[in-house]
């Protein structure tokens, strides 16, 4: 009896559907992803029940770190034509008699995260590329009554972009003294509306518990 010859199967698996699937996932992730921002100080935001989303554009974010430093960031959203960031820095430079070059302004525009550099050190900060030196220069924005640079920053930001909204990104463990100081500075500049950045956490209330 002749042996039945089985057709020799190729050991290759057809990967095309897998590749298709991966392509779709990759495209989806690339389009929806908003990169995790790296901040100069680690921040654990407190949680709340609020479901409002952070505004994308026209924000100035005050980062209050655990060690009582204040960092500042501006975001004019995806529309970069307006170039708020360099304008704000030029305005700040005028107040402190510092001339920033085109290159420094561009670097400032592109800087991705919050900054806590005193304005006098800003030139040095923008000129260096060394991360260690940059980190060492991030000593927080001075908020003393004698050298209140934060209030000038806020003033300049609001002159350049009147629609700006103030956001506060604070760590759970940040002392209240610094928060109070910052709130007072903002109130001096007639900013009374704040967005406190929080993470979402559900809260449940049992009505029966309070029906005593």
């Amino acid at each position: 009896m002749p042996k039945i010859k089985l057709p020799t199967k190729s050991p290759h698996i057809d990967m095309t559907p897998m590749v298709d699937l991966f392509s779709v996932m990759l495209t989806f992730l690339m389009l929806t992803a908003t990169m995790n921002k790296t901040e100069p100080a680690p921040v654990v935001t407190p949680s709340s029940i609020s479901e409002k989303k952070t505004p994308d554009a026209n924000t100035m974010t005050l980062l209050l770190s655990k060690d009582d430093k204040v960092y500042l960031n501006f975001d004019n959203g995806p529309d970069t034509l307006l170039k708020y960031r360099p304008k704000i820095l030029t305005e700040m430079g005028k107040r402190y008699n510092i001339d920033f070059t085109e290159k420094e302004l561009r670097d400032f525009e592109k800087y991705p995260s919050s900054m806590g550099v005193p304005i006098t050190k800003m030139k040095e900060f923008l000129d260096t590329k060394d991360l260690k030196i940059r980190t060492a220069l991030q000593t927080g924005i001075p908020i003393d009554s004698t050298d209140n640079q934060l209030s000038d920053w806020i003033f300049c930001t609001r002159t350049v972009n009147p629609n700006v909204q103030a956001c506060i990104l604070g760590d759970t463990k940040t002392g209240f003294e610094i928060v109070k100081k910052v709130l007072d500075i903002m109130a001096d500049k007639n900013v009374f509306k704040f967005n406190l950045i929080t993470t979402l956490e559900a809260a449940k209330i049992n009505l029966a518990d309070i029906q005593k």
Partner: peptide, 30 residues
Amino acid sequence: MVDLMCLLITFFMLTSAMSKPKIMEINLPE
């Protein structure tokens, strides 16, 4: 190609922040 895509997907999944932080509005007295 599959290997490469696996790598890219893993990278994007780890670096992207899926949930945007929320905000709580507060108005202080003038």
